[in-house]
C-alpha cells in the first residue's frame, strides 16, 4: 500500500465516482419503463394507450347498418358522399346505446349555410347561395329535403 500512500486521496475520488455511476445504473434499471424500446426510442405501451382512446364519431358505416332507409335516399341524391356525422355531429354514444341516447335534429336554417353560404373563396363548382336573399331566414327544409336536396320536380 505504500506505493499509493500519496495518491490515496485520488483513489478515494475515483471510488466516489464509481459509487455514483453504480447508483445511476441502478436508478436506470429501476425507473425506465419496461416497454421502452419495444419499437424504437419510446414507450411501446403508449401505442396501445393512444389506440385505446374513446371513439366519438361512430363512422357512417355504423350508422348505415340501422338507417338503411336514409342511406337509400341519400345514395340517389347530391349528398351521396356526405357522411352522416358531417351534419348530425358525433354519434358514437347514440350508436352505442340507440335506445336512450337520441340525437337532436339539426336546424337547417343554420346547418346548410355552413357549407352553402356563398363566399368568394369557395371553389366555383360548389353550389352556394346568399342565404339572406335566397331563403330569408326560412329553414332550408321548407323546400329542400336534407338527405337529397333537389327540389321535387326540379329538372336540374
Amino acid at each position: 500500500m505504500n506505493r499509493f500512500k500519496d495518491s490515496e486521496h485520488l483513489l478515494r475520488v475515483v471510488g466516489v465516482f464509481l459509487v455514483g455511476v453504480t447508483l445511476f445504473l441502478c436508478l436506470r434499471a429501476w425507473f425506465v419503463p419496461k416497454s421502452f424500446g419495444e419499437f424504437g426510442h419510446y414507450r411501446g405501451d403508449s401505442l396501445a394507450e393512444i389506440a385505446a382512446l374513446p371513439i366519438i364519431h361512430a363512422g357512417h358505416e355504423t350508422c348505415e347498418t340501422c338507417h338503411t332507409d336514409v342511406l337509400e335516399v341519400k345514395k340517389a341524391g347530391k349528398h351521396a358522399n356526405v357522411n352522416c356525422e358531417a351534419c348530425h355531429g358525433p354519434q358514437a354514444k347514440h350508436a352505442d346505446d340507440p335506445g336512450s341516447v337520441k340525437p337532436l335534429l339539426p336546424d337547417t336554417s343554420v346547418l346548410c349555410a355552413r357549407c352553402h353560404e356563398a363566399s368568394s373563396a369557395k371553389p366555383k363548382w360548389f353550389p352556394a347561395v346568399i342565404t339572406a336573399e335566397h331563403s330569408m331566414g326560412m329553414p332550408c327544409n321548407t323546400c329542400h329535403t336534407s338527405h337529397s336536396p333537389k327540389i321535387q320536380g326540379d329538372k336540374k
Partner: peptide, 18 residues
C-alpha cells in the same frame, strides 16, 4: 477531505499535475 489528510509534498505535487 474525503477522509484523507495527506498533504505531503509529493501528494500536493501530484494534485498539481492532475
Amino acid at each position: 477531505t474525503l477522509g484523507s489528510d495527506n498533504i505531503s509534498e509529493r501528494s500536493l505535487h501530484l494534485d498539481e499535475r492532475v
